[in-house]
């Protein structure tokens, strides 16, 4: 039994009186590829944003790689809210791909990828450049290295976004609806890159998406979220063909008919 690399223990996230995550229990094992699906407002993106430390939690404990993410142990062993140094250390473990890409518009594609390794990890420029070239080849953008983000299509920008996150060598990759902002004909190229990553690397991957077919192909496990809780989880074949919960059936029916 391997220890989970991500563990949510009765996590509550509330904005004022609006509860986004309602005592969520959720685990991901190292190397596992997990997809979260669910209606909007079900809290699925919030899970990723909490992990990336973009959103603090209201209650409960999140563990990443065996350590509490939003807490640190004080002298007597009890948990206290984490300070910035702890959060910085924890952030190193994760990389995030955003729905809107969030590339740095004033930097070339290559610099988007090398900037954080150089400035944050202190890697030598030449080394960062070599690594960026490898990543650009992996995402098929070698010839666009010296362009600026606005000169690329959405699909190309998102592939840069993936390369940029990978350049920090995270253990866990978080994908927050990576294809939702793309024109339909550009979705495939991004999914292919993510698929390749899933097949060739032992990265832990947590993906929020509406691409059900894709989720089915690459996931070890699919989780259905509804109203701030995980209502059902199962291997993709099982969840998509034989969902146990009424809500899951309704959601899948609505989504698949919509396509």
């Amino acid at each position: 039994m391997t220890e989970p690399i991500i563990k949510f223990d009765k996590v509550v996230k509330a904005f004022g009186s609006f509860v986004v995550l309602n005592k969520l229990d959720f685990e991901v094992k190292p190397g596992e590829k997990v997809t979260i699906i669910g209606p909007s407002g079900s809290g699925k993106s919030t899970v990723l944003r909490i992990l990336m430390t973009l959103e603090p939690i209201t209650d409960g404990v999140v563990y990443v790689d065996g350590q509490p993410l939003w807490h640190e142990k004080s002298g007597d062993g009890s948990l206290k809210p984490a300070g910035e140094p702890h959060l910085r250390k924890m952030r190193e473990k994760m990389g995030m791909v955003f729905q809107q890409f969030n590339l740095f518009p004033h930097m070339t594609v290559r610099r988007n990828i090398t900037e954080a390794p150089i400035q944050v990890l202190g890697i030598a420029k030449s080394e960062a450049r070599d690594r960026a070239n490898e990543l650009l080849e992996m995402v098929g953008l070698t010839e666009h290295a010296d362009k600026y983000p606005h000169q690329l299509s959405g699909g190309q920008q998102q592939r840069v976004g993936i390369a940029r996150a990978l350049a920090m060598r995270p253990k866990i990759m978080l994908f927050d609806e990576p294809t939702s902002a793309l024109d339909p004909e550009l979705v495939g190229e991004v999914l292919n890159v993510i698929r390749k990553l899933a097949e060739e690397h032992d990265l832990t991957m947590l993906l929020v998406t509406h691409e059900m077919n894709f989720a089915r192909q690459i996931s070890d496990r699919v989780c259905f979220f509804d109203q701030g809780r995980m209502l059902e989880e199962a291997p993709p074949e099982e969840l998509f063909t034989n969902p146990k919960e009424q809500r899951t059936r309704e959601f899948l029916k609505a989504v698949l008919e919509g396509n």
């Binding site: 990336m52 952030r91 990389g95 955003f98 969030n102 900037e115 920090m168």
Partner: peptide
């Protein structure tokens, strides 16, 4: 979004200002 991307890449607040926000 730019500040969030900088945070996800672990830029310090100072480097976020000088390298991401100000340019």
């Amino acid at each position: 979004d730019q500040y969030e991307a900088a945070k996800a890449l672990n830029f310090t607040p100072r480097k976020t200002l000088w390298r991401i926000a100000l340019p």
